[in-house]
Every structure is written in C-alpha cells, then in structure tokens.
Simulated scan of single mutants.
Amino acid sequence: MVERINYEQLPQIVGPYVHATKHNQTLYISGLTAYGTHAQSSDICAQTQEILNQVLTILELEKRSRSDIVKVTIFVKDITMLATIRQELFQFYEGNLPACSLVEISQLIHPDLLIEYEAVVAL
C-alpha cells in the first residue's frame, strides 16, 4: 500500500504531486525547493537552509532522524556553487552521510530557484 502525504507545515503544493509517499518502510520525499518561502529570491545558501529546514520538519513529523536519510539527489543550476553549500550539508547530516547524486540542471520550476533536494528515508 502506498500512502501519499502533504504536510500542512510545508509550503503548499500547486502541482500534480505530494510532498512525500510511504511504501514498504520507506519515505520518498519529493523535490523540495524554496519556492513560496522568504528564501525564494535569496542566494543558494539561504535556499539550502530553507530546504534543509523543510526536511527536518518532515523528519520530526515522521518521528525519524537525520541518520535515517538513505539517499538524496540534489539538483543545482550552477555546479560551481557546491562549495558554497558543502559545509551546510556536512553539518546537516551530523556525520551520517547518505548516498548522494548531484546534478547540474539548466533551470527549475521558477527562475529564482537555484537548488532542489529530494530524499529517501528509511522508516
């Protein structure tokens, strides 16, 4: 059985998807961005902090910890900006580094957005 979840605490979704789905003891978090938040028109650091706060909100609501993050995919508009957010990511994971794919893309759903982050979490 698949459970589809939208979290009231996160920015509202306007597209044909949900914040996350649960299946077989796994939580799949959709691509999160700073869209619709105070950080939307900010730099990549502020957008990354907003996204990681959204991930923390989901983990708290699901009664999980950062160490339960198994795999992430990070989409960035400029791969050279990775060095700018690398330390934030290391701090966020608290030593529990997940498997990760990093992909440079030409654009996201809004021109202000610089980064999108999706995750798989073990339940």
Rank of each mutant, 00 (worst) to 15 (best):
S101Q: 09
L123C: 00
E116S: 13
F92P: 07
L108K: 05
C45G: 02
E3P: 01
L102K: 00
T57H: 11
Y28A: 05
K22H: 12
Q9E: 15
V72T: 15
F75A: 02
G15N: 13
I79E: 15
E94Y: 00
E88S: 08
V120C: 04
R4W: 11
S106G: 09
Y7L: 08
L123I: 00
G95V: 02
V72M: 15
I44P: 05
Q12I: 12
A39N: 01
I115C: 07
L89V: 06
T48W: 07
T73E: 14
V2W: 03
S106C: 10
V18F: 14
Y117K: 06
L108T: 02
E94C: 01
H19Y: 06
V70C: 04
T73Y: 08
T33W: 07
V70G: 00
H110S: 12
Y17M: 09
F90M: 11
T57L: 13
T73V: 13
L61W: 07
L123D: 04
V55F: 05
N24L: 07
S42C: 12
L108M: 07
R86M: 00
K71Q: 12
I58F: 01
I79F: 12
G31I: 00
Y117A: 10
T26M: 08
F92V: 05
I69A: 01
E60T: 13
Q87S: 02
L89M: 15
S42E: 15
L27A: 09
A34M: 02
E3S: 08
N6H: 06
Q9W: 07
P111S: 10
E118L: 14
I51M: 04
E62F: 13
D68K: 07
Q91F: 13
L52F: 03
E50M: 13
A99C: 01
E116C: 13
N53L: 14
H38Q: 13
P111K: 14
H110A: 14
V2Y: 07
G95I: 03
T37C: 11
S101G: 01
P11E: 06
D43Y: 05
R86E: 06
E3H: 07
R86K: 10
K63Y: 03
A46M: 14
L10F: 02
P98Q: 12
I58P: 05
V120Q: 09
L89S: 06
I5F: 05
V18E: 13
A83V: 09
E104P: 00
R86G: 00
Y93T: 08
A99F: 02
I5D: 03
V76Q: 03
Q54I: 00
K63T: 08
D112S: 13
F90D: 12
V72I: 15
Y28E: 09
S30H: 14
Q47I: 05
L82H: 09
G31F: 05
E62C: 11
R64M: 08
Y17S: 14
Q12L: 11
Q12N: 14
A119Q: 07
G15K: 14
S30R: 10
Q40R: 08
N24D: 11
E88R: 04
I79P: 04
G95A: 04
K22D: 04
E116I: 03
V55S: 06
G15W: 04
T57Y: 13
A99N: 00
D43W: 08
L61V: 02
S106V: 12
N24E: 09
V70Y: 04
E104D: 01
I29M: 03
I58D: 04
